[in-house]
């Protein structure tokens, strides 16, 4: 099985970690005027080594100076149905393409496979079997997800099938070869952007409900750039020499859920699937 550019080193898996959470700026800073806040943000960024000039983001930051992405987030729109431009169907909204250039650059063989997937999506879509959705499909599904941020680790917990991604930000490399539905993720901050590098996919997941797919050589780089404290610009570059003629990029906003007291609830689709068994053969269409 081919491996991607994962920089493997034996024995250098997850380090011993006692992650302490960076503290937010003191609350009284939030009552200052906008201009004073901007000056403070600029002054703090100037004295913290390694950070560039101030970006436009003026939301919460950790004591290390990074944007604090803690909270509950969710994507809008219908990219989960189809990443490319699509018209409405019964129960499915229309949507513009989220792909730079409009369409995914498949090889001819892969393009044919995509059409086969699409024609058989009611039976072949792994998410219709309640399988883990992979990356970046998990982000675009219309369920919320929660980010917990510590210096060594970002935990993203998704309401959909209680999926969890551990994004190691301690500098550790991808582990020894293995195949995961959600891949293995290693992240770092580049200015105000969280860059997440994910490899070690098993090739069993799709990118949306329309049959767009990848192989086990998929390499995903996500860039989470918060713009305000209420939304993140999410940009994803996908590379897979088995399937695409070149790397390609998709982008869509992620919005903060603002309801007070919100927590992730359950979407335990394994339970729904077993319920479907008792109602009819083959379950839902």
């Amino acid at each position: 099985m081919a491996r991607g550019t994962s920089g493997l080193t034996s024995g250098q898996a997850r380090r011993h970690a006692q992650p302490e959470r960076d503290l937010e700026l003191p609350q009284h800073a939030m009552t200052l005027t906008r201009s004073v806040k901007a000056w403070l943000a600029g002054a703090l960024l100037c004295v913290v080594p390694g950070l560039a000039h101030a970006q436009t983001y003026d939301g919460p930051r950790t004591t290390a100076g990074h944007p604090d992405l803690s909270g509950i987030w969710q994507v809008l729109g219908s990219a989960a149905w189809d990443l490319e431009a699509h018209n409405a169907q019964d129960g499915i909204p229309a949507g513009l393409s989220v792909v730079d250039g409009g369409t995914i650059p498949y090889t001819p063989a892969a393009a044919a496979r995509r059409e086969t997937n699409r024609a058989n999506r009611l039976t072949h879509d792994p998410v219709r079997k309640c399988f883990l959705p992979g990356v970046p499909r998990i982000t675009s599904l219309p369920w919320p997800f929660q980010v917990v941020q510590t210096p060594d680790l970002m935990v993203m917990s998704y309401e959909y099938a209680h999926t969890v991604r551990l994004i190691y930000t301690d500098g550790s490399p991808h582990p020894l070869p293995n195949d995961f539905w959600m891949g293995d993720s290693r992240g770092h901050w580049a200015d105000d952007t969280l860059v997440v590098d994910t490899t070690h996919f098993n090739g069993e997941t799709w990118l949306d409900a329309a049959g767009n797919f990848h192989s086990n050589e998929l390499h995903v780089v996500e860039r989470y750039t918060p713009v305000t404290e209420y939304h993140i610009d999410y940009e994803v570059t996908l590379e897979d020499p088995q399937v695409y003629t070149r790397p390609w990029t998709m982008r869509l906003p992620i919005y903060k859920r603002m309801e007070p007291g919100l927590r992730l609830l359950d979407y335990d689709c394994v339970d729904h699937l077993l319920g479907a068994l008792s109602q009819s053969e083959g379950g839902a269409q």
Binding site: A80, W81, R128, P142, L273, A276, G282, G283
Partner: peptide, 13 residues
């Protein structure tokens, strides 16, 4: 003895 693998659910609303 149940054909569990045949069941399908909606992927999203």
């Amino acid at each position: 003895g149940t054909d569990v693998e045949a069941a399908r659910v909606h992927p999203i609303r």
